[in-house]
Amino acid sequence: MEIWYKKIYCYGFMNIKKYLKVYSYFNYSSISIELEYKINLFIDLITSILGLIGSVFLLSIFFSNTDEIGGWNFNQALIIQGIYTVLNGVTNTWFNPNLKEIVKYIREGTLDYVLLKPIDSQFWISFKRISPTGLIEILLGFFVLSYCFYLNNISFNIWSSIVLIITLICSISILYSLWFLISTTTIWFVKTWNATEVLRSFLYMGRFPMDSFSFSLRIFFSTVIPITFITTIPSEVLLGLSPAWKIILEVLVSMTFLIFSRRFWKFALRFYTSASS
């Protein structure tokens, strides 16, 4: 009994403590790296604001010709923009900078050192770097979202906010898994930077309600690359349009993706042959 108790303590709580501590060191080091380029932070801020203006402009072109696309009116479609901006910020803050590192680890063979460390390799690889520029985008996204609340007269209660948080967490897990799956393939293909460009251009379509695409593309976007689950369902949840089964499905899909990406990483590591001289 005592051993069982100790096991949970050592591998559970102590581990979480250790990981949190390591994570705070990660953040500290990468933020000090990023702050070296202060002007860049400013330029990135302008870039994300312009990007948002651009996509609202595009939406306004669509809606100048019609009242609704795929059953969504302008104010509702703006929610998707908000959620997209938040998620894009998350991608730019956590996933993108780390992915660049993974490619480098594998090309230069420095993954050896990561694997030798007494810490989970997936944790190290996924959270080593953080880029504060994306945080601005997240703030911007939440700003748009709160404006949308006003536009759409959304009455906000505890229940809906819990569901929103759950769906957002699910979207982030799906996004993370997609990015991590692609970066895992680096072990075989070494240069996967371009594959992420493909993913990026597909994810770009998450700015628009999935119902505005034709049926075949909608199928594609909910099975092959689950963009539907990433932006459209959280927006539907906000509007109170989403039935319960969609939310449950989203949770299931994100769990599957997370587990699969974990398994895939473990599987891929078996094929890792170091590259250093």
Binding site: A195, V198, M205, F213, S214, L217
Partner: peptide, 26 residues
């Protein structure tokens, strides 16, 4: 192989076309 992937990443116009025609925006 990389260049092929670059080419694929440029398919955004086709998705946009889908939105345009599917909603009769044109």
């Amino acid at each position: 192989a990389e260049i092929a992937l670059w080419a694929i990443s440029g398919v955004i116009p086709f998705f946009m076309l889908n939105i345009w025609t599917n909603n009769g925006l044109n």
